[in-house]
Design a protein around this nucleic acid. Sequence first.
DNA 1: ATTTTGACGCT
DNA 2: AGCGTCAAA
Length: 598
Amino acid sequence: MIESMIDLLTRVVLIMEDGGSGKVVVLVDMDCFYVQVEKRLHPELKDKPCAIVQYNKWQGGSIIAVDYEARKYGVKRSLKGKEAKEKCPGIHLVQVPEKRRKADLSNYRKASGEVMKVLSGFTSVIERASIDEAFLDLTEPVKDYINSNSFDSLEFHADLKSTHVAGCNDDDDTHKDDCDLRISRGDWFKSSCSSDERVLIVAAILVQRIRETILNEVGFTCSAGISHNKMLAKLAAGMHKPNQQTILPQSQVDVVFSTTLLKKVRHLGGKLGEQVQDKLKIECVGQLQEYSLKVLQEKFGLKTGSWLYELCRGICHEKISNRIITKSIGCGKNFPGPSKLKTAKAVKYWLEQLSRELVERLEEDMTENTRQAQSITVHFLPEGQASSVARTFALPSYNTSLIVNNSWNAINKGHKPVTNEESHLTWTTGILNIHLSAGKFVQCGKGHMKSLLQLMSSDQECSFVSASSSHSSIITGKEVTQMTLCKEEREDAVLTTTPTITEQDQSLETSSMNITKFFTPIKRKGSLETQLDRNAKRREVVLEEIKGTLESDDDTIIDNQFEAVLCSECGEEVLKFVLEEHMDYHFALSLDKDSQIN
DNA sequence: ATTTTGACGCT
DNA sequence: AGCGTCAAA
């Protein structure tokens, strides 16, 4: 009974030409993004087959992006650089930059930001879906455009060269079919076209402009899918690449779905897609239409069942959030097989490297987005375990030592050493991966007029932490006085951390890694901006002093960075502000020795 | 020995 | 909070 009512309602919805969404949704997807970023940086690579690799010591590195020229030779993601050379001897392999002995993706994040900025010029509703993809809600812009005067004077054939309509044989130039004629002739547009297709064609004109603007302003090509919801837009975007766009109207859904493999649909590319395929013995999305809502819910649960029921009819209610910056900032590194971390020294070294990258990125994020992360989660994968372990702790200030120490404690809790010989703890099992992720961002700082306005006007994505008096919380056994997060109170916030140094910590403190003290208390006075200004000034001075020969250093604010000290390892005089890097250098040497012994 | 990310759902 | 899934380069 209920089922037949839902079937009836669904049929009614389907009579509505756009599947009931009433929206215009676009997915913009950059073509082989990392390759384009590198080619912009190295124009001589233009028109040459090219792939991006991470690292290259082992098998020529792992490929993470491939341009369309190289794809012709069968070069794919996840191949080794070496294998790519075999398939395509002329290929140019560009390495991802490395910093602190790990891959550094910041160039690509910056380029992504450039694209997002251009997109924000066209519509107020943008969802960053990944580093190179964004969903746009063009419903309003399309309405505006239709209501504007320029609408009548459209010349479709001129503007829609790179536009396709899904489900039409538009690949063969000699056999232009109905779909192509539709979009290339204004007269058809005015007379013989359903209203949902009409808005999508107008959207296609806007998307064409958006893509041209991205190319002109930041120099990247992209592809796009134009439809009524996220699922269809994403599917459409993949149909014609690179540098093209595809309309997928509701009227074409059945035709397209009759040959679309399940795993090609968003969210069905993994285990669920396999389950659906196996349980129902079907291959294509369209075949799902043969199953009642009841049966789908029995087999896959209430929620997933109704999701599948609607999905195969082209209906998808996934909301487009309004957010072009990430909700978390993280970095991690794998230590596969032979390179697994076996000593406390090695773990601390990499925690230091990861923490420094994280703090660097968090500080940039703060100046860029006037927000501050409130928590860190450390993930690590002990050898022999199926899944990684995660532990979360509070982040009262952006401080490398704090992150290193809390992470170290977290890792130690469930991972006991078998021997403990003077800063050389050894575990029965090694550590195969460490990942640090900062999250729980709250808006902060001055210049809050603008950010507050943004906050108020945007949909739920941003949330306030209500301004209240300072409170303490117990997290991972450490008492932390948190700052008040909003408004004026913040100005006078003073941070204190209460150190609880364990025996193990102290034994480690003698290790060459521990340059700064654990939980160096940080007192803050004055506004955030003042702090940032000071940091910026300090960096300028430092940069001038060392003439750009060294990475600018980060975190721990020490009064006199220019005081020289004698290095305990080599006896050289070293300025304090490069001491950490200097010790890293020694440690890297010792690690290399270690690995030679092994 | 793909690696390094990031979002979200489940419990 | 911690784990699992899915996805992108």
